[in-house]
């Protein structure tokens, strides 16, 4: 087993009402310490009100090669966007 502290990904909620956002990584021996390290490393300039940490090896991700089949099929579904529809101005706010 490696003697290096595991790598953690850190997510910070910047303000109340916002989602947590990935801000970076750090090393820590356990989850509790990772949260404290996250506080000390990533919120020194008043950047956050809440922190999530997750050990990097627990993250599952899409493969780069799947980018085409996964994401391109949604490109032509323009009818999902409100701007696709022409509604006369006379109808008013919609």
């Amino acid at each position: 087993m490696s003697d290096e502290w595991p790598l953690w990904e850190v997510f910070v909620r910047g303000r109340h009402g916002l989602s947590h956002r990935h801000v970076g990584s750090l090393h820590a021996p356990d989850a509790e310490t990772a949260i404290r390290n996250g506080r000390d490393v990533y919120t020194r300039r008043n950047e956050g009100v809440s922190i999530w940490v997750v050990e990097a090896r627990h993250i599952s991700a899409t493969a780069p090669g799947d980018k085409g089949p996964l994401f391109e099929p949604s490109e032509d579904k323009v009818y999902r966007h409100p701007s696709f529809y022409d509604i006369p101005d006379d109808v008013g706010q919609m």
Partner: peptide, 13 residues
């Protein structure tokens, strides 16, 4: 220190 903290983390897990 690094070893001690890691050992504790493993025990805790």
């Amino acid at each position: 220190v690094r070893e001690g903290l890691l050992a504790h983390g493993r025990k805790r897990r």
